[in-house]
Every structure is written in C-alpha cells, then in structure tokens.
Design a protein around this nucleic acid. Sequence first.
DNA 1: CGTGTGAATTGGAGCGCTCCAATAGCATGC
DNA 2: GCATGCTATTGGAGCGCTCCAATTCACACG
Lengths: 327, 327
Amino acid sequence: MEDVAAAAGVSRSLVSLVFQDSPKVSEASRSRVLAEAERLGYRPNVLARQLASNRTRTFGILLAALHTPYFADVLAAFEAAAEAAGYRALLANGRREGERESEALRTFIDHRVDGVILASPRISDSVLTSMSKIAPLVCVERRVDLPRIDVVMHDERIGAQLVVDHLIDLGHRDIVHIDGGTGAGAAARRDWFMQAMRDAGLAASMRVIGGEFTEEAGREAAEQLVRGALPTAIFCANDAVAAGVAAVLQREGISIPGDVSLVGYDDTMLAKLDLLSLTSVRQPLAEMAKASVELINRRIDKPRRGADIVDIAPTLVTRRSTAAPRS
Amino acid sequence: MEDVAAAAGVSRSLVSLVFQDSPKVSEASRSRVLAEAERLGYRPNVLARQLASNRTRTFGILLAALHTPYFADVLAAFEAAAEAAGYRALLANGRREGERESEALRTFIDHRVDGVILASPRISDSVLTSMSKIAPLVCVERRVDLPRIDVVMHDERIGAQLVVDHLIDLGHRDIVHIDGGTGAGAAARRDWFMQAMRDAGLAASMRVIGGEFTEEAGREAAEQLVRGALPTAIFCANDAVAAGVAAVLQREGISIPGDVSLVGYDDTMLAKLDLLSLTSVRQPLAEMAKASVELINRRIDKPRRGADIVDIAPTLVTRRSTAAPRS
DNA sequence: CGTGTGAATTGGAGCGCTCCAATAGCATGC
DNA sequence: GCATGCTATTGGAGCGCTCCAATTCACACG
C-alpha cells in the first residue's frame, strides 16, 4: 500500500479510500492509484482491512448436516444470497449434534463474522441467547422465541394444506402421513396435516405413522402399510422418506401412482429424479435466504430491535407420483 | 488481552503464549491466565492473530458446482479433513464457469488462506500457475501438469477395470459405456473402459455412447439403446447418468438387473437409494481429502518442491443393479 | 559466593489496513 | 481582499494480536 501510494504520489490514506470506493476521491487520483496498484500487483489484505474496520463482510452458515440433499440445497441457496449481498460464507457442519453446533458458533464469533445463519439448529436456547448478544443470529426452519433472534420459516400450515387439497382434488380420501418423528419441523407438519384432514371432514380416514427424516424410516413405514390396509395416498415427511416408500412399493409390485399416490416434501433433487418424479412441497429457499440476509443487515443497523419472524409460503410441485386413486 | 494480563498479573506476551499453547509457559501462569480469561469472557481475536502471525489456518475449498450429489460428498469429505487437520474451510462455488472460479481463487488469496483445494476446476493453466506462486494449490480430479501444483486423483484405470471385471465375471460380454462427454475425467474413464474391454478380448462387442454427466444425458442414451440393440450391461459415466437410464428402462418395462445390468460411478447418495441400489465405483474421497491436506502442509513447509501426483485406488461397491445377463 | 544455564517472562516493534480530525486547495460571494 | 464553504487530501493513532531479542529468575555447580 505504501509503495502504491509512493508510486502514485499520494498518501496511504488516499489509496485506502480508493480501494473503499469512496466517492470523495477525485477521478484523477482514483485512476492514477488504480493504475499503479495494477502495475505493482497490489491487492488489499482482507485480514488487515477486517481488523481495522471491525467489519468482515462474512457470514457463518451453520448446517445441521451436510450430506443430505436438502441441506445441499439450503447451502447453495444461502451461499448465493450471501454472495449477492456482498458477503463471504464461512461454512460449518453441525453433524446433527448440538454440541458441535455450539462450538461452530463460537468459532464463527471468534472470526468476527457479521452474522450467522443457522439452518435447523439444535443448539440450546441458552447458547443462542448468549451468542445473540455478540453477533446477529438468524434461525432458519426453527421457531425459537428469543429476544433478539430473527426467524425465517416456511409456512408448514400452507405446505400441509397444499398436499391435502391436491390429494382431495384428485379424489383421495384415504391418506396416510409418515411423519418425521423428532426432526425439525416434523411435529408441525404432522399437526397441520391432521388439521387439514379434519377441516376436510376426513378425520375418520386419516392416519399417521411415526417415522424419521430418512429413507430407512420410509421403508419401515411402507412395509407396515403393505402388510396392512394400503391407503390410496401417502404423504411423506420428506423426499427421502418418500424414496424409501417408493422402493418398497416397487418391490411389492405396487404401482405409483396407479395404486398409490406418493407425496414428498422439500422438492430436493430426489423428487426431481425421473425415476421417482415425486410430487413434493417446495420450500422457497432462495427467498428464505434473501430474507435471512436482509434480517441480518437490518439487525446490524439496529441491534436492539425486537425479533422478527418471517414466514414464507411454500408451493406444491406436482409430478407423476400423484394421480386419481385406484378404483 | 490487556485486561486478562493485568488481572493475572502477567504481561500481554505471556497471555499470548498461553493461548498459543506454548510449552514454555509454567503451569502456574497458564492456569492463572486461563482462569482470568474465562472469568472475563476473553477469547482471542482470530483476525488479529491471523494478521500478526501471517498464518490463517484456513483452506479455500473451490467446488466446480454445489448442487450435485457428487460435489456434496466432495465438500463433506474435504471439510472434514481440513477440520481434522485443524483448519477452517472457506467455501466457494465455481458454478461450472472458469471465470467465476478464477475470481473465487483470487478472493481466497486475498483472504490469505494457507492453501486452496480445487475440486475438478476449469481454471486456465495460466491463472493456476500465477496463483500457485502465492499459495499452495492442490487440484483434485484434474490432472494438471504444472511446476508447483500437486494433484490428487483417483485412478480411473482401476475404476474402469473393476467395472469391466465385475461384469465379465457375471457373464456379460455385450457392454455399453455412456460417457461423460467433456466433463472432468470423462475421457479417461471412457478410454480405460475401452482398454479394459480390449484386454478382455471384447473389442468387437464394446460400444460407447456420447453423453454428459447428467440424468438427462442418461435418459437420451437409454432411449437410443432401447430403440436399437439393447446390451446386457450398461456402464454409466456417473450415478446421475445411471439414474436417467434406470428411469427409461423402468418406463419401458425393462428390468434391472433381470434384463440389463447397470453400473454407475462415484457411489453417491443416488447409488445408495434402495430404489436404484446401484453398483457403483466409489472414489475414496476421505483418503483423497486427507492426501490433499497433507500435500498442502508439505508445500507450506517446502514451497519449491516438485509437483506431486497422488493416485488413489477406487473400489467397487456392488449392489442389486448388477447380475448375470438375461439368457 | 560468584557464575553459568536453562526456563520463564517481558517490552516493544510490527502486521496492513481504517478512520478521524486536521489541513490544503480552490472557487464563490460580497 | 477576505471570510465562507466546499471538496480532496493527509498524518497519525489504533485495531488486537505475534514474535524477537532481551531480561529476569531460580537453581545447581565448582
């Protein structure tokens, strides 16, 4: 920086201003500095800049897991949104353990990130509260109710309603839900499913099977269904569960959607597979990511504002796995 | 830091040493400092530390894409290896464009990362060369031949050989390969397939169909095969291609593996799906990641050493998609 | 009791930038 | 001609640490 300043015949401060895109630099100085910097191969040291300015323009993105299609989509969406807003992403993988997540959160804060995005975190409220005093935190897909922590959710009620409406429109009455057990959002998904069924006057024929957010769980539930009374439609807690169900049905010679309609959730890569072509509820991840970044920006400006909670409406993507019930 | 030093009755330097885990701090001072730090809630500022020490303990991980199952696995493996070696991961998504990748590489260097891991990069050799003078670079799954750039590959020859041997053992002779077109590693995969077939005396019956690393390409190739002479086994450039093939075969009522055996590549989540249960070549990503980190560490110690190229042997994971040919 | 030794500790310069208050330069208006 | 109000520039302190050389300390030795 010193060298560039000398070469351009200006002060170090001016060079700094040029690289900050400051409007109060004259056109002449700007181009001269830029030219010399280019010539000397100078690039500002981001670290020094961050230290001096106390701003890193970096987000921490904490994922509950990394290896599932859903979180891959989440990561892609949030990384893109951060970048669009001029931020870098520091990544951490919680590996489904609250303990690891807390540690990752600490590390983010040690790195002085400007904000942290927590995707379906399991961290305890007390850790969240104490961290929220240090850096803006946004929880995605977990409805925490804490003073200064903003929340971005997709609307589970709408999701369940879309599924039930779609299936009823097709003529289904006998619908089973395989739930996500203790997974994030599973309870709400199940409850809203039941509510929607009741509202449709189908309380009698609705069934729920306990599961988990895994293919394995889908297989187990399907085996149970195959041995008992097969419904005409199955609404799965997520796409992985649906994939498990599909595998068992295929093995049993039960056609989708000929014999049973199948619905997933999250609209991941799995649902898009031609092999499955799964009707699925799509979380608007891009919008959720954008909203999260905005919330962080807002909280950087005004750290003491009340917690916001943003609900974004999902949509239903219909594919070949749903059709009219067997006669 | 000042405060901790004062509270513990020592100098700032000593506090620094304690937080560097220096062995030359007496047990007494260490515990006193640690206790005071804890009490005051002090944690070292990573940024300042990085600036002063000129070491960030951070890797940049540049992925050619983010949304495919393969790269999700790659990311998970490399992030884990970096962490195991005490590094943080800075992530960038190349989105399949060389231009974006160069930019991301620049950004990594601006952040003074200790090394960069490039997964299947498309960056030009000239950019690679100039960057390699600034930070250690490791190319994964791209065989560059440049002075100071280490390379980690899985051995394509072994991969193709495993597949061909497996299929021949099962009794197949009429084997088609759907290739990955211009994708990373596609040419080698195809060539070694042809070589293995020739070595097995099957030069006459071997066929190759041009494709791409996508489900779509798999579908197109399968449609072509279905309309013409169906082989007894299909070796796909990767799992996504195999998924496309499987979809078409299923639609046509062609059984896997009853009528046609199917083999994928990369052993991604897709291959593990019960619905597909795809025999697939597994790249030993964990080992590749470990090797990459070691190479970077070695190059940090000795920047001017010659380029290493590490080949790691893949394995074949057999699942239900392969069996003896139809009679 | 002075001295040598190794371990523990310290002071201070420096990492490469930002940011503030101060200054310079220059047209404007009366 | 001089105060006024700009905009464009500058010097220097400071961000929170590390690292080196220098110093202190404790203890054993002849």
